[in-house]
Amino acid sequence: MEGRTGFFAVVDEIQLARAKRGDLEALEGLYRVYADPVTNLARRICRSAHEAEEVVQETFMEMVRSLRSYRGDGAFGAWLRRIAVSKALTVLRSRRRRAETESRPAAEVDGPAEFPSAVDGTCGWQKLDLERALAVLPDDARVVVWLFDVEGLTHREIAALFGRSTSFSKSRLSRAHARLRELLGRTGGFTDASESGRSVGVAGR
């Protein structure tokens, strides 16, 4: 499944070849093309603007360090996105470790989630409500639903990024949708049975 975000901008091969050789102007060009998609992805994964900015910087430093290993056998944007997700997941793990050390919920460690302003409705879903619902999902569920439904990654790709199985990715996607429906009070919500261990069924049936 192809991604739908700015990671799939067309990159000039000459610019890419120059960037591989360490040309700063070419590297800056890549930064200018991908800074916003990387920031958006980092914000969706980390929620905190401060952490997202850290992810952006580390992602592009890693891009500079590893660019020579990029062989061009896949889209450059997809390659960079994997780095960004990996960096963002590292931030999440670090936050979780801090929370465990301080014995408080991970969400409290970096303060409340920050929402972009959005009020228009789409397909009957209020964007602001959706933003809020997305922000309160458990980290794993939020990351998986974003990577699968928005970025277009496969369960296999997501599983690899988490170092888990595809069942993990599928169960977190189910959990995310069930929770979103519940939080938004949508009709015909699902029972999230991934926690109870039984088969997930459509509620009320």
Binding site: A35, T39, Q57, S117, T122, V150, L180, R181
Partner: peptide
């Protein structure tokens, strides 16, 4: 399906500052 469409329709969040000088 409509949930996925609604997620994709959420506005993008761009970077609030220019990181390039520091990266450079």
């Amino acid at each position: 399906r409509s949930a996925a469409l609604a997620l994709r329709a959420l506005p993008g969040v761009g970077t609030s500052r220019d990181h390039w000088p520091e990266i450079r």
